[in-house]
Amino acid sequence: MLKIIKNRLDQGYRTSSYPKQPIALYERFRGRPQINRQCDPALIRQCAEACPQEAIDAASGAIDLGRCTFCGLCEMQSQGKFVQFSQNFELGVATRADLITDGSYADLAGHAKQHFKKLFGRSLQLRQVSAAGCNACEADTNVLNTPFFDLSRFGIDFVASPRHADGIHVTGPISRNMKAALLTTYEAVPSPKVVIASGACSISGGPFYGSDEIVGDLNELLPVDLYIPGCPPHPLTTLHALLTFFK
């Protein structure tokens, strides 16, 4: 017992005061890209060709954050002249089109559906479905339940039964073998319900695009209300998206 108390004192209070106070991530973290479309078009073309995710449109210089895994190659390739990643982790958006950015970003709070705020603003229960996620997306969602993020203090919880849920939070590129289970889980959630696509995989197939064993785009199956990009999205990206969209 003494050990438990001693450890409790050692550990102290660890919960972050975000969102009341801003939180800074280490400079190597790659959040919102700042894009300089005025740079040499040859440089943009080079980056577009090098991008493993085919996320850069050479003609317009726009980046599709639904495909991007934030690997940082384009920043390195252009030595920051075309793309520079900021540490801003606020990446969630309400439409697929808003993920394609030329450096400007849609205001998530403004696009959030008001009736969702009314319905779920005080309490939101989500059923997480991993549809062939690589376990990084899952782990960094799970981590929201640890003392540092402590998601439940906002009235948001992940629940076991879809019957108790207000919506689903989907990770992974949706393997053929998970399609049926995903749809059954969705059916089991009572309406009105929300659908959240989390991670490059559920939005575009992520690293697995082109494989014929995956669906690769959740929107093809279900109407997505909220997109959270990243590979995986940083826990704060998810937290910010959930709070802004529903609170």
């Binding site: 991993s130 992974g172 590129p173 393997s175 073998n177 998970m178 697995f208 082109g210 064993e213 995956i214």
Partner: peptide
């Protein structure tokens, strides 16, 4: 098998 994404099939083609 539910997580099968066709990794080994995909790797030699990319």
């Amino acid at each position: 098998g539910y997580q099968h994404r066709g990794v080994e099939r995909l790797l030699p083609t990319v």
